[in-house]
Amino acid sequence: MPETIIELRGVHKAFAEHVVYRDMNLQVYTGETLTVIGGSGQGKSVCLKLMTGLLRAEQGEVLFDGEDVGEMGQRQLVALRRRMSMVFQGGALFDSMNVLENVGYALKEHTKMSDAEILARALECLELVGLGSDPNLIYRMPASLSGGMRKRVAIARSIAIKPEVILYDEPTTGLDPMNCNVIAHMILKLQRELGVTSIVVTHEMPLAFEVSDRIAMLHDKHFPFQGTPDELHRMSEPAVKDFIEGRVEEGDEGHGA
């Protein structure tokens, strides 16, 4: 039995009237890549934000390494985020800072590294995400980067602090197929080379099947279907089959709000 690093137990989360999770349970094992799939607007990203403490659950526990994230104060959250970083949908790079300042941001906040050390670490991270060839890149502003580059810089920013867990929120949304492949390879590569635990939220099945050790499918406000990619392929539940094969489920279209 592998070690559990993150565990969500009986989580209930709602925004006003809109219930996102009801009695939801999910486990993440150390070192694995878990992909969370499900339709748009069902609250897959909420799951990541619960894990990193950006949102709090109304009921239930969100445990990281045995400690309840929901109970953490500011200082403990900072310590948590030293170990777990998040790659946001669209990158969420800071518009007012250049690439170097973006990638070095967490190092400036968390460590006492000198500017030279931060520069060296930033270049190392950009190299890891395949952006090491252009020496002037670090002085460019996010607005001047392409979508694929922005995502990669965002990944570089998240790994700069050497986290144990990386949360990817829709890492390939809005990218062309080639860039999607690049990102998928990068997720695999980072997991291999850094040994991190990765949690990927996506609705793109090729990505999910390519990078995952396990897949959890969000359905009816919890994760009833969990398993390896092969197991998911073999499942006979119509909901799973429909989703994987991209068929529209009757009456399920309205959930996209």
Partner: peptide, 17 residues
């Protein structure tokens, strides 16, 4: 604009307030 592009969440998740 920072809020809608999740930059404010990003600041928090990178360990700053």
């Amino acid at each position: 604009s920072m809020k809608v592009s999740e930059q404010i969440d990003a600041i928090a998740s990178l360990g700053a307030d």
